[in-house]
Every structure is written in C-alpha cells, then in structure tokens.
C-alpha cells in the first residue's frame, strides 16, 4: 500500500496509541491512597516517571499523581506497575 507523502506527513503520531507502549492510566486520589497503604510507603519510595514522559502526553498528569501501568510480561502474562509523576 502506498501512502501519498502529504497524507503521511499530516498524520500526527500518537505514541500513546502505539501497541508497544504499555497502557498508562492515571489513577484517582483514593486509589492512590490505597496503594500507598497497601505497600506501606510514601511517595518517595515509589518508582518515578517524568512528567514530560511521552507516555503521559494528553493525560494532564501533575506532579504527585500516580500512574498505573499495565504491561505484557513474559513471566506473568500481565503485570501491573505503579509510578509517581515527578519533574526532576
């Protein structure tokens, strides 16, 4: 299939739509509290993600928000991971 060049250029690439990118979802304040309680941690001990990370575009994520990442895993099939948005 040949795509005309201008069509190709016009098309904006949404990296969030790419199927290699695991699903990133911002979770609610309540869920966030529950996660922190479950693992007995403060935000400091959580894994981080940059606010400017390409996977968060269009998500309106603010510093301190928690992102739930659902990935495909070779060992577990599907694995959930949580990250906290930071800017440094």
């Amino acid at each position: 299939m040949i795509i005309a060049k201008r069509d190709y250029m016009k098309k904006k690439i949404h990296i969030t739509k790419h199927d290699l990118l695991p699903k990133h979802v911002k979770i609610s304040e309540k869920e966030k509290k529950a996660i922190l309680k479950k693992y007995q941690v403060t935000l400091k001990e959580m894994p981080k993600i940059m606010k400017a990370d390409a996977a968060l575009q269009g998500m309106k994520a603010e510093v301190g928000d928690m992102i739930k990442i659902t990935r495909k895993s070779p060992t577990a099939g599907e694995a959930v991971y949580y990250r906290v948005v930071t800017d440094a």
Binding site: Y39, K44, E45, M46, A79, V80, Y81
Partner: peptide
Amino acid sequence: SGGIVQYS
C-alpha cells in the same frame, strides 16, 4: 533505602 523496584 526501601524504595520499590518491583511490586512482585
């Protein structure tokens, strides 16, 4: 330092 690396 207690930072989480993997949840499981």
